[in-house]
Design a protein around this nucleic acid. Sequence first.
DNA 1: TTTATTTAGGATAAATTTGTCCGAAATAAG
DNA 2: CTTATTTCGGACAAATTTATCCTAAATAAA
Lengths: 144, 144
Amino acid sequence: MFSKACEYGIKATIYIAVKSMRQERVSLKEIAEEVDSPVAFTAKILQSLAKNGIIDSHKGPTGGFQIEETKIDTIKLHDIVHAIDGDKIFSGCGLGLEQCDARQPCPVHDKFVGIRDNLKIMLQNTSLYELATGLEIGLTHLKR
Amino acid sequence: MFSKACEYGIKATIYIAVKSMRQERVSLKEIAEEVDSPVAFTAKILQSLAKNGIIDSHKGPTGGFQIEETKIDTIKLHDIVHAIDGDKIFSGCGLGLEQCDARQPCPVHDKFVGIRDNLKIMLQNTSLYELATGLEIGLTHLKR
DNA sequence: TTTATTTAGGATAAATTTGTCCGAAATAAG
DNA sequence: CTTATTTCGGACAAATTTATCCTAAATAAA
């Protein structure tokens, strides 16, 4: 469903959010450990999240990643996925046709659109805040 | 959402079904043309569909692919996807965790399961017959 | 100012998916 | 039986995704 890059990116962002709610900055190394993801690859993903304004990055000693606390509940899962994978998940024909819409649909158009709308709505309605809170209170986990 | 292999496989199967309803067998070449897919790659996909009993294949002159007419309305989109991609679309954690279930969920577990159940139900409820019929009466299309 | 630490970013490599090529096997028809 | 046609199946190649490595740039602290 999601690419590996997205999986790592979502996990990392949630972890950063939890720490940010405690006014703590986290290093790439710590993130990769806590999220069980390859360090260098995770670095790339965090880079693109930073470029997209989802997270803040700081170089040097005491550097690391963090998220503005006020942003944590405005950021949605949708924003994270979009920053990493673009909108290819949300657009395009289910069977790969160039021209496919309600007027000239492919055989699965309607059914496919329905599912994808569900996905999009879910992503747009899920806030980073609720994901981070669930993790912080031990309701959910990020490793293994 | 679907792999390229799946996209080609679904389109090919629908096309074969339409022809089979007219008691016609179709060659790989014709399928690839009508479905706008790479010939050799399509051959591999048809091979695995044949091995999985979704379609029948016949070698030699007048050979080609077809689907038992009685099967056309019992075959579901789910069967095609499953034959090509296995059940990796239907199982596994949304964030790639090894252990993730209702008791020890990842942060997106519940939301993800909901979407995937929708997808599964849709695939299980969509028959090859309805897809083929829609194409035959010109309601849908497979090219471009 | 120097040093240690941390992210940025480019080059490269490994793995997977997508796609091609070609000879073998089957089989219908002359 | 021979030939032409069609799928089968293995080897190979290209493209994309995933992952690593290394140097540069920034920056905090001694």
